Computed example of a mutant assay.
Amino acid sequence: MPGAPRFLTLADVAEVLNTSSAQVYALVRRGELPAIKLGGRGQWRVEASKLEDFIAGLYDETQSFVAAHPFADSETLATEDAVS
């Protein structure tokens, strides 16, 4: 099977997301990031396609947040006040 692996460890996911393994574990345990638990030792794995779906969902959530909470910096507000 050439190319990237189908399944990633939580440490691999943490590296991709530039966060900690503990944060990734929390995402998995809360059900926000789909994962599977393997074997008697309970090793977690995240399918690469599920990680990409998760990231795409975060972009959608962020876009909705930004649309609902427009950014207004002090420079913009000062300019608008001066024009009024």
Score class of each variant (00 low, 15 high):
residue 59 Y to A: 08
residue 63 Q to Y: 03
residue 11 A to K: 13
residue 23 Q to A: 15
residue 60 D to A: 15
residue 3 G to T: 08
residue 69 H to N: 15
residue 81 D to I: 14
residue 74 S to Y: 07
residue 74 S to L: 13
residue 46 V to D: 02
residue 19 T to I: 09
residue 17 L to W: 10
residue 4 A to S: 05
residue 50 K to R: 09
residue 83 V to H: 06
residue 6 R to Y: 02
residue 26 A to N: 09
residue 72 A to W: 02
residue 7 F to T: 10
residue 52 E to Y: 03
residue 49 S to H: 00
residue 64 S to A: 15
residue 17 L to I: 06
residue 5 P to S: 11
residue 4 A to Y: 02
residue 41 R to C: 00
residue 78 A to Q: 14
residue 81 D to Y: 13
residue 33 L to D: 04
residue 32 E to A: 14
residue 8 L to E: 04
residue 25 Y to V: 01
residue 78 A to V: 05
residue 50 K to W: 11
residue 76 T to E: 15
residue 78 A to N: 09
residue 48 A to S: 12
residue 21 S to A: 13
residue 83 V to K: 11
residue 52 E to F: 02
residue 23 Q to V: 09
residue 38 L to S: 06
residue 17 L to E: 05
residue 23 Q to W: 03
residue 57 G to S: 14
residue 57 G to F: 12
residue 56 A to C: 04
residue 16 V to K: 13
residue 26 A to K: 15
residue 33 L to H: 10
residue 65 F to H: 15
residue 51 L to I: 07
residue 80 E to A: 14
residue 69 H to L: 06
residue 26 A to L: 15
residue 4 A to V: 02
residue 18 N to W: 06
residue 55 I to P: 01
residue 1 M to S: 11
residue 8 L to D: 00
residue 57 G to T: 07
residue 65 F to M: 12
residue 66 V to F: 03
residue 14 A to R: 03
residue 35 A to H: 00
residue 35 A to M: 04
residue 77 L to W: 07
residue 62 T to Q: 14
residue 52 E to C: 05
residue 79 T to G: 09
residue 61 E to S: 15
residue 39 G to A: 07
residue 70 P to K: 07
residue 76 T to L: 13
residue 7 F to C: 03
residue 14 A to P: 08
residue 76 T to F: 12
